[in-house]
Design a protein around this nucleic acid. Structure first.
Lengths: 339, 339
DNA sequence: AAAAATTTTGCAACCGGTTGCAAAGATAAA
DNA sequence: TTTATCTTTGCAACCGGTTGCAAAATTTTT
């Protein structure tokens, strides 16, 4: 257990001390290699005396497995993402993988990030975002690196695994819930207009509403998933043309929107109803009590990592997966109760 | 720009194509190495034709710099940490470093994590937490790896850099602010009792109060930095013995505590006042408006990464740094205004 | 006890890069 | 033009590991 401050011991030194060949040491530290019990003990003894630990990077050179997984994201301002983060890192760790984070928030050149992950020889990449430029994940697939796009939508490419939710159906869910309130003027307050998730939810939303021609629908988009964005957008709607019930693209946006409403003197849910999206932890807190649509974060992430694990272990074929989970409405206090 | 699906080209292949030696290629991709313009163009041409990018891990073998930095944390349930995360990843990226995340939340064996980071040859480690077991950061220092402990307290060891705040002074700040409200029964609702940050803040808090013997003080600790924890602790205080104004260890705890108060029918700040800690984004939201103590997150993190950068660039001496920033009170709506 | 089968071992080459060094080439000085 | 100086280049060794292969050691079979 000796520590030799600074300089870390190598294979060779352990071999010398144990009086065996370097291969023997290597084998001792390689799962399922052939070593006699005698040499193994000699090596382990020497290794622990020197405080030896194998250099995983050097090993990766020959094994071609680094254990590194790129985790790419760009929404570092939405509390929901902390949960995502927590789950992903835990799941990955459990599988012996190490997450290498890329914060795309202000990365001027997204392509450069791709390069970087390639240079670090990541075994795979998780893209966790529904607001990245379309085609971003492609670069990895093109480079032959397994990708799973969490919270994405099954897209144009066959070689990108997608795990997420059925956003169209989620839009329908929201529409039905608002309709059940008896509203005849409802609104859709989406996230960034170009995001696929926003578009899909809108599609489902309108799909259901198309059966209710009497109900007026207004459509707006928040610039991003922030409190301010929700606040501002709702504030301007209050001045223009206010509906009775809104489906907001996100819980944080919902909270912003509700603040704008309350500040303008509207009572929720009596005068205006809100249904959010995500069911982040805070949505259940006493001072929020937001009615919202829950996406099964845990399931999505577990599935993503499993999918990755499968690809990484099965050397040969890579069956691309597209798995979408259903969402559910969580009723709290921002929509009127319906029987 | 050709891509050769799956198989990535190596130094040698580029060299062959360019008709130069492998060294020449290596030098072309090494900052400040000696290559003629002619060879450089030939190499660059060949490289881009093959889609070549150097293998950073192989390089690290000889350069002894991986560019990897361990980022160790355990508080993945506090929104403030998302901000911390965002800032750290950005700051590190800006310096060309890549964060390797360790989520210590449920890592059974903290020591094992240390081993792992060592095996990945991280250039340095950032420990971002004030609630890790004392001595956790030590293991890195012992292995000769630069550590900076963000949000820590200057401790028993000389070789661990610490960047954070003066928690004792923060405790004083809170006490003074509560005293200014004219309360004569105040409370301290701390975080985990064993955390150094909690203890320091309590010390400062009591330090100021010791000058006001008339003021009764009650001390309690929340098990962790969560809503529930704050809620439960406050709920039990309501039953036992309620003060007029509380200093809570964290904004999330504050919100939990306030929920308990409101649910029991107390009005804030008229009947009970609260001052929190952190000034997380949400504290400023309309439905919260929490009076709180802000710690300068951005400054702390920038300083941490700078400190790291310095250590990594200056080959020779490693002047240990201890830098503590001051905090400030952010007045909002959960404490009565004072002239 | 000898032969056959099996396990363990070390050698040497390799993974994808970097780098000290001496030779070759280019440029400047004499 | 010759010599001295500076720059560029390739060779070969090395970074810290892994692994195919054949020899050595051990175990099993006859």
């Amino acid at each position: 257990m000796e520590e030799n401050r600074g300089k870390r011991p190598t294979l060779g030194e352990v071999a010398a001390l144990a009086g065996v060949s370097r291969s023997a040491v290597s084998r001792t530290f390689t799962e399922g290699a052939s070593v006699s019990t005698l040499t193994r003990t000699k090596v382990e003894q020497a290794a622990s005396q020197l405080g030896y630990r194998p250099n995983l990077l050097a090993r990766s050179l020959t094994t071609r497995k680094t254990g590194l997984v790129g985790l790419v994201a760009n929404n570092f301002h939405n509390p929901i993402f902390l949960e995502v983060f927590d789950l992903f890192t835990r799941e990955l760790q459990r599988k012996g993988l190490r997450p290498l984070i890329v914060n795309l928030t202000d990365e001027t050149d997204a392509l450069r990030s791709v390069q970087l992950l390639l240079e670090y020889q990541v075994d795979a990449v998780v893209v966790a975002s529904s607001t990245l430029p379309v085609g971003f994940a492609d670069s990895f697939a093109e480079a032959g690196i397994p990708v799973v796009h969490a919270f994405g939508r099954p897209g144009h490419r066959e070689d990108i695994n997608v795990v997420g939710i059925d956003n169209i159906e989620a839009g329908r869910l929201a529409a039905r819930r608002l309709i059940a309130c008896g509203y005849d003027r409802v609104g859709f307050l989406g996230g960034p207009e170009k995001a696929t998730s926003t578009r899909d939810r809108l599609e489902g939303f309108l799909d259901v509403l198309s059966d209710y021609p009497k109900i007026q629908t207004r459509i707006n988009f928040a610039g991003d998933y922030t409190f301010e964005s929700g606040f501002d957008e709702m504030a301007s709607m209050i001045l223009r043309d206010l509906g009775q019930g809104y489906f907001c693209a996100d819980d944080v946006i919902s909270i912003g929107a509700m603040s704008a409403l309350r500040r303008a003197g509207y009572r929720i849910p009596e005068q205006v109803g809100i249904i959010g999206f995500n069911d982040m932890e805070m949505a259940g807190w006493d001072n929020v009590r937001l009615t919202t649509i829950r996406q099964p974060l845990g399931a999505i992430i577990k599935e993503s990592v499993n999918c990755l694990g499968q690809i990484l272990s099965s050397e040969d074929s890579k069956p691309t997966q597209h798995k979408l989970f259903p969402c559910e409405v969580i009723d709290r206090d921002t929509l009127p109760v319906t029987s």
